[in-house]
C-alpha cells in the first residue's frame, strides 16, 4: 500500500477553505489536507509558506491550485523547484478534490496528479434541454 499522498490547496481569497468545507459535506470529515490563501502575501512569502509544507512530505505530494498563471500557480511551481516528487495541479474543482480524497491512499503523487487532471476534464459537461 502506498503511503498517503499529501496535498496543499493554494487558492485566491478563501476559496481553498470553502472548497474543503464543501468537500466535507460530501465526503465527511477530512484530515491531513492543508489550505493556504494568497491574501496579502508577496510572492516570496507565498513561496516560503508553500515550501514549508514540503518539509513534512517524505515522498512528495500535490500542490492543488485554482488557475494557470495566477500567483497561487506561479508560487506553487516556484516552490516545487528542486522537489521532483512534488506535482502542481492547476484548475482544481470540487469533483477533483473529492477524487483526491477517495484515492490519496492508493496512488503516488505523479499517478494521482494525472488521474486528477483527467477527472477535472471529464467533470466539465454541458446540459441543455432534455436529459439523455
Amino acid at each position: 500500500m502506498n503511503p498517503r499522498t499529501p496535498a496543499l490547496l493554494v487558492m485566491h481569497s478563501d476559496l481553498a477553505a470553502a472548497l474543503m468545507r464543501a468537500a466535507e459535506k460530501v465526503y465527511g470529515a477530512v484530515e491531513d489536507v492543508e489550505v493556504l490563501s494568497n491574501e496579502g502575501l508577496s510572492r516570496e512569502e507565498m513561496e516560503q509558506a508553500i515550501a514549508r509544507r514540503f518539509e513534512t512530505w517524505r515522498d512528495g505530494g500535490l500542490v492543488l491550485t485554482d488557475f494557470w498563471g495566477g500567483s497561487c500557480h506561479i508560487c506553487g511551481v516556484a516552490a516545487a523547484r528542486g522537489h521532483g516528487d512534488v506535482v502542481v495541479v492547476t484548475g482544481l474543482n470540487l469533483p477533483m478534490l473529492l477524487d483526491y480524497l477517495h484515492n490519496r491512499d492508493e496512488y503516488g503523487p505523479l499517478a494521482l496528479a494525472d488521474r486528477l487532471m483527467r477527472k477535472g476534464r471529464d467533470s466539465v459537461r454541458l446540459h441543455h434541454g432534455q436529459p439523455s
Partner: peptide, 9 residues
C-alpha cells in the same frame, strides 16, 4: 508578484 491573476485575467 510580476505575472499573476490580476495581470493575466
Amino acid at each position: 508578484r510580476l505575472i499573476h491573476g490580476q495581470v493575466v485575467v
